[in-house]
Simulated scan of single mutants.
Amino acid sequence: MSASPPLISLRSVSRTYRTDGIAVTAVRNVSFDIAQGEIAAVMGPSGSGKSTLMNMIGLLDLPSEGAVYLEGADVAGLSEDRRSSLRAHSIGFVFQSYNLLARHDAIENVALPLVYCGVGRRERLARAEESLQAVGMLHRAHHFPRQLSGGEQQRVAIARALIASPLIVLADEPTGALDSRTGAEILALFAALNRTGQTIVMITHDPGIAKQCRRTIRLHDGELVADEKQATILPKRSAAP
């Protein structure tokens, strides 16, 4: 029996942008795989290419050279409509700034991705309740973002990322806007999700976050400089969120 392909594969990936006629290469000749069930950090200083790499893993952008594969399929060979559908169904995004809609309460924010998946309102809200429950935020379902703390908003954002049961969750500096205690709670939540089998990649410049993941992929000036696996894992989530 042949082995299953990696969830995500990057093969000699480069991304070059042109600004005012000047070519700038943000990512250069990067290759690695992400397996189902991994929790990994992509680490590097500002300008190292982390966000560009996340955009390619998340099918928001295509490489200038090389290839990105999702479950063995070269995403560059897919139509834009197909890539959009894969993003909606297979990729969950969590951002430092939460990106919640101010005029919608928590449950409506969480349910929003299912609109683009063609799911009816009743099912959307039922699944949003389940997703909020998974992150300990069901009791705040009808509160608006302005009524939530930073940590609560990030939990809602994580619930939103999980609602379509994605293959992979991409988190871009998910604790960057939080104090250290709340940030630790969010990391523990990611650990709990990973123990259920959720694949998670966190983009970070924080060595403390990277140290707590099973794997750290390091970038510098757009190049892959290290790919390290370690026994240390994220802390367990507290019993009461």
Rank of each mutant, 00 (worst) to 15 (best):
L62F: 09
S14I: 11
L112C: 00
V225H: 07
H220Q: 15
E185C: 07
L86C: 04
V201Y: 12
K236H: 15
G66R: 10
S84N: 13
A184V: 06
L178S: 05
E123A: 13
A159L: 04
R28L: 11
D206C: 02
S90E: 15
R87N: 05
S46C: 08
E80P: 09
S84G: 10
R140T: 08
G222C: 09
S12T: 13
H139W: 07
L187K: 06
L224W: 09
Q147D: 13
E223N: 13
R87I: 08
I107Y: 10
Q212T: 08
A240P: 15
D227M: 07
P207R: 00
R121Y: 11
A210C: 00
T19H: 14
I34V: 10
G21P: 01
R218F: 10
N99A: 09
H143F: 05
L101M: 11
L125C: 07
P5N: 08
F32H: 05
S12C: 09
Q212M: 13
T232R: 12
I168M: 03
A88M: 07
S12W: 05
L132A: 06
K236R: 15
A88S: 14
A210T: 01
A192T: 03
K236L: 15
V13R: 08
H220N: 15
V27T: 08
P6T: 03
Q147T: 05
P241G: 15
N55E: 10
Q36M: 13
S165K: 15
P207A: 00
E129A: 13
A73M: 10
G72L: 03
A141Y: 00
R83D: 04
V30K: 06
E80I: 02
G47F: 00
H143K: 03
L125T: 11
K50T: 01
R195Y: 00
E65D: 14
T196I: 03
A210L: 02
E108V: 05
A191C: 08
S149E: 02
V30C: 03
A35Q: 15
Q198Y: 06
A188C: 13
P63I: 14
I57F: 06
V27H: 07
G77K: 08
V135L: 12
T199M: 05
R140N: 07
S48T: 02
A171E: 00
